[in-house]
Amino acid sequence: MNSGIFITGTDTGVGKTIVTAALALHMKRKGIAVGVMKPIETGITSSGLARSDAARLQAVIESDDALGAICPFQFELPLAPLAAAQAERREIDLGVIQKVHRLMAGRYEYVVAEGIGGVHVPIGRNIDVFDLIARLRLPVVVVGRSGLGGINHALLTVEALRRRRIPVAALVLNQTRPARSKLERLQERTTVEILRKQAGVPVLGPLPYRSELSKQFRKTVTKLAQSAAITQLAKAVRRAAR
């Protein structure tokens, strides 16, 4: 296949990492040589390195790639990437990310790359995540919330990608909080129904809320990788690659 996918989100904290990990693990178990990247990550201290998104992705697929290749740009402060880089008097170089990604693509049939925040998040002066996606020339999976408020954020993100002529392989909806009441379940169901009618791309999920995620990341991802939603997602991204 010699291709890949970029996982972006409608916002921060919507579940990009677990979708990235589950998709990569699913592909690996199907016999596909798969690599992972998290090109930029903030809020990473030396003591918390093992709990970083990049380290989790590395561990889930048992990658032998160096963490510096999976994540070329790590910053200590939990800020937007531009602010975190400026605090350390550093710059995020898209050329470096592109070069590392090209090396990864040469090693693997498929590379699953996870973004940071949403598509308009600035990562440098006059550059944002859109520019990163354009440099890597990858189709995109959008991860969004399945609850109230998810419609607007998802439609805005999909439309913004369309305007930049970036292919969207699928929209994955994630339950970021449990729907406990009858009203919350109704809000979620109608969000999913409306997006399936209006998004204009395959809408998958919603993935269930997982309270144990932070403590049992590998176990949770392993279970999710076997789900119908991730199986459908894998088919969607392979269609996008063709």
Rank of each mutant, 00 (worst) to 15 (best):
G43S: 04
A24Q: 01
P122C: 12
R135V: 11
T176I: 15
G68Y: 08
L183N: 00
K28S: 09
G4L: 03
L204Y: 03
R242G: 14
Q232V: 00
I70D: 05
L94Y: 05
A54C: 08
S46E: 15
A179S: 12
L79E: 13
L136A: 02
F6W: 03
K16H: 05
V96W: 07
V203H: 05
I32L: 00
Q86I: 09
A240Q: 06
R189A: 15
Y110W: 14
A80N: 02
I32T: 02
I70C: 03
A179V: 14
G48Y: 08
I44L: 06
D93N: 13
V100E: 14
L82H: 13
V140L: 04
G43A: 06
Q216L: 13
A84H: 06
G205F: 14
V142R: 08
G124Y: 00
L204E: 11
V119R: 01
A199Y: 10
A228K: 13
A105M: 15
G35D: 03
L156V: 11
D65Y: 09
R239A: 12
V172E: 10
V201P: 01
R145N: 10
A54S: 12
V140K: 02
E91G: 00
D53T: 01
E109T: 07
A240W: 02
E62C: 10
Q198I: 14
E88P: 04
G4R: 07
E184A: 12
T8N: 12
V143E: 10
K28L: 03
K99S: 12
A134F: 03
T10Q: 02
D11S: 05
S227N: 07
L173S: 09
H26D: 07
L132F: 10
L186C: 00
G43W: 08
V221C: 02
A55F: 08
